[in-house]
């Protein structure tokens, strides 16, 4: 948005030749690279999306890290630690991709901490039991992967490259969640109940992860045209439902939707109506954990300031000494 305002303030209409070259490159599925000319709105849209994605990775560490110290076996503890670590890594890849557009990570973090940029609302739900770790892996990561795989072909090069790396690394995330739930589902009665309860709570929020229906989605059409986005929200949501239904059956768990059934004619599953009022409420900040998540993030950042300052000061002293 900043870039757009500057353009407008300067009263500069972009060179039509540049616009045409850009449009042609995107239409031909070529990649846009950081120093190429790009429309201010494209840049702003990318920064917004990459920042939100990066923020989601690092806020998303919290609900799972909540169980690292309590994981019920050492094998599970190691898996969970590695997964949460990956999320920090993925946040880093995405922040560095966003930085290629001239926005520093500090700026983005400041906006997150000030509530000016969003992260995925799914992380505003609590992890109440161990089974929630499995449900996040299976459903939340599953939904995220459905969203992310097409982004590996996104028109902006650095974003697409970051996504290739992320998708490759995330392939174990969903599997570990599924395996975790399977162990619970096939375990004791109490474990099975724990797994079912987690799936009951995470199913609908996972469907909401694909964003509002296509006709209500603010940024969708333009993002599709720019090939920042390659499929519509509803299309991806349907794909996810179709994949998840047989997986739930194999788990021996049910999905909490009485209207869920196969539609022979469409060749897809029909499913019930999503409670979008809940989605908008959580997005507005009224979810169960919004304040907690952002509070912890802000605290970690503020309490870490002296550490970052110390290292910078050390570098300054010793950089001078060397020169």
């Amino acid at each position: 948005m900043v870039a757009m305002t500057q353009d407008a303030a300067a009263g500069q209409a972009p060179d039509p030749a540049l616009v045409a070259a850009f449009d042609a490159a995107v239409a031909a599925d070529e990649r846009v690279e950081p120093r190429d000319w790009m429309p201010a709105e494209y840049r702003a849209s990318l920064v917004r999306q990459m920042a939100q994605h990066a923020h989601s990775e690092i806020i998303g560490m919290q609900p799972e890290a909540n169980w690292i110290t309590r994981a019920p076996s050492l094998r599970r503890k190691a898996i969970l630690m590695a997964k949460v670590q990956d999320e920090a890594g993925h946040g880093l890849y995405l922040y560095s991709a966003a930085e290629t557009l001239g926005t520093s990570r500090d700026e983005l973090l400041d906006k997150l901490h000030a509530g000016k940029q969003k992260y995925s609302s799914i992380f505003n739900y609590p992890t109440l039991t161990w089974a929630d770790v499995g449900a996040i892996g299976w459903l939340v990561d599953g939904a995220a992967i459905t969203n992310q795989v097409p982004l590996c072909r996104c028109s902006y090069g650095p974003y697409a490259r970051a996504m290739v790396r992320i998708c490759k690394e995330e392939s174990f995330h969903q599997r570990q969640g599924y395996e975790l739930l399977l162990a619970l589902s096939q375990g004791t009665e109490a474990q099975h109940a724990m797994a079912q309860d987690a799936v009951d709570r995470w199913w609908w929020p996972s469907l909401m992860m694909f964003g509002p229906p296509d006709d209500e989605s603010a940024h969708s059409a333009q993002s599709m045209a720019w090939r920042i986005k390659r499929h519509s929200n509803d299309e991806l949501r349907q794909r996810f439902v179709d994949i998840a239904v047989p997986q739930a059956e194999a788990l021996g768990l049910t999905l909490p939707d009485p209207d869920l059934k196969w539609n022979e004619e469409r060749g897809h599953h029909d499913f019930g109506t999503i409670d979008w009022s809940e989605f908008w409420e959580v997005l507005k900040g009224n979810g169960p954990c919004n304040e907690q998540r952002i509070g912890q993030r802000r605290r970690a950042h503020e309490e870490g300031a002296w550490v970052r300052d110390a290292a910078a000061e050390y570098a300054r002293k010793h950089g001078e000494a060397k020169a």
Binding site: A88, Y95, A300, V307
Partner: peptide, 15 residues
């Protein structure tokens, strides 16, 4: 050390 997850002073240090 696992207790640090999500609380480190900078993202690089989380890793």
């Amino acid at each position: 050390l696992g207790e640090w997850a999500g609380h480190a002073p900078v993202l690089e240090e989380e890793v």
